[in-house]
Design a protein around this nucleic acid. Sequence first.
DNA 1: CACTTTACAGACAGACCTGTCTGTTCTATT
DNA 2: AATAGAACAGACAGGTCTGTCTGTAAAGTG
Lengths: 204, 204
Amino acid sequence: MKKPNAKDRILETAGKLFHQRGYSEVGINEIIAKAETAKATFYQHFPSKERLCEAWLEMAHERSEIRRQAILKGPGTAAEKIDQNFANMEEFLANSDFRGCPYSNTSAVIASGCTGIIKQVADHKQAIRDFFRELATQIVGERAMNEGQCPSRLGDAIFVLYSGAITEAQNLREMWPVEAARCAAGELCATAMSAGEKSPVSTL
Amino acid sequence: MKKPNAKDRILETAGKLFHQRGYSEVGINEIIAKAETAKATFYQHFPSKERLCEAWLEMAHERSEIRRQAILKGPGTAAEKIDQNFANMEEFLANSDFRGCPYSNTSAVIASGCTGIIKQVADHKQAIRDFFRELATQIVGERAMNEGQCPSRLGDAIFVLYSGAITEAQNLREMWPVEAARCAAGELCATAMSAGEKSPVSTL
DNA sequence: CACTTTACAGACAGACCTGTCTGTTCTATT
DNA sequence: AATAGAACAGACAGGTCTGTCTGTAAAGTG
C-alpha cells in the first residue's frame, strides 16, 4: 500500500525534489535512493534525466489543468474566482516554503537545447493565460466586448500579476507580493466592470 | 586598452556568462578561459564561485541603482517614467535574447545555504520596490495620501507587474507580457490619479 | 638594481554527475 | 510449476566540477 509502482514512485519523488531544490540541484542518485529503487529500474522507465523532467512537468500540468477546469465550472463570479486563485497561491507558497513556480524555476536553469522542457513550460503558461482570459471575458461581458472593451488585455494583465506575485514571493520569502497582486487584480476587474456599465468605449 | 584588469575581466566575463546561461550552468574553468586568465589568479581575487556571484550581483545592483536615481531626478512625469521603464525592459530583453532577471534566475538555482546571494537578491528587489513606491507617491500626491489613498499599494502593484513581465517574457520568449504589464500599470496609475481628483477615499 | 605584487600556466585531488552494464531476485500469469 | 517481465543491487566508465598547489614570468616601486 506504500509502494504503488516504481515509475510512479520515481516521478513523485523527483517531482518533490525538483520543486524543493530545483532541477539542476537534484541528481539521479538522490532520486533513486529516496524513491527506494535501482538505477537500472530508473533507466528502464526514463531514458534520461531530461525526459524525467518533461514527464514531471507534464504530470503537474495535467493536475493543475483539472483544478482550473473545476474552478471554471464551479460556483461564484469570475471576479471571485480570480481572487480565490490568489488565496490558493498563498496557501501553496506557505506549504512549499516559498518555492515559487516549478515551470519558471526550471526554465531558468535548463540549456537552450532542451526543447521538450521549454515547450512544456510554454504550454503550461499559455494554459494559465487562457484561463485568466476566459475569466476576464466573463467579467467584461459580451456587450462591452462589442463596444470596444478588450477582455484579453485584462486577462493578460492578471496573468502577469499572478506570475510576478509568485516570483517575488519566492525571491523575498514574503507574502506581500501576492497581496499586492491580488488587490491590483481586483482593481483592474472593478475598473473593467464599471467601464462596461458606464462608458461604452474604453480610452485605454 | 583591451585588458583592463584581471579582476575586472573575470567579473565582466562571469557576469555575461551567468546572465546568458545561468549561474549553475557556467563553471570556473569556462570563466577563466574566456577572461583569458589563470585559475590561480581567479582564486586570488575571489575565494569561491559563490563569492564571485555575490560580487557580480552587487556590481549589477550598483549600476542599476545609478540608472534609477537618474530616472528619478530626470525630466518627465512619474507616470511617464514608469512607462519608460517598461520600454527599457523591452530593449533589455531584445538585447539579451529574453534572458530575464539575473536576480530571479540566480535565486531559482542556488541552495538555501547561500545566504549572501539571497541577501543580494532581496536587497535588489527591495530597491526596485522602493523605486516604484517613490514614483507612485508622486502620482497619488500628498493630498490624496492624507485622504486615504495608498501610494505604496500602487507602487507594489507596479513592482509585481514589472517582475511578472520579465519572468513571462523569458518563459515564453515573447514580448507581449511586457506590453500587458505596461498597459495595466498605465491603467492603475490613471485610476489612482482620477481617484485622487474625484473621490477622496478609495473603496479598494 | 632589488624587491614586492600581480598574473600566468597547468597539473592534481577529490567529489559528484549521468548513463551503461552484469547479474540476481521477485512476482504474476498461464 | 514454468516462464516472462519487472525490479533489485551496485560496479564501472567517462566526464565535469570546484578548489589547491607548485612554479614561472612580468610589471611596478623603493
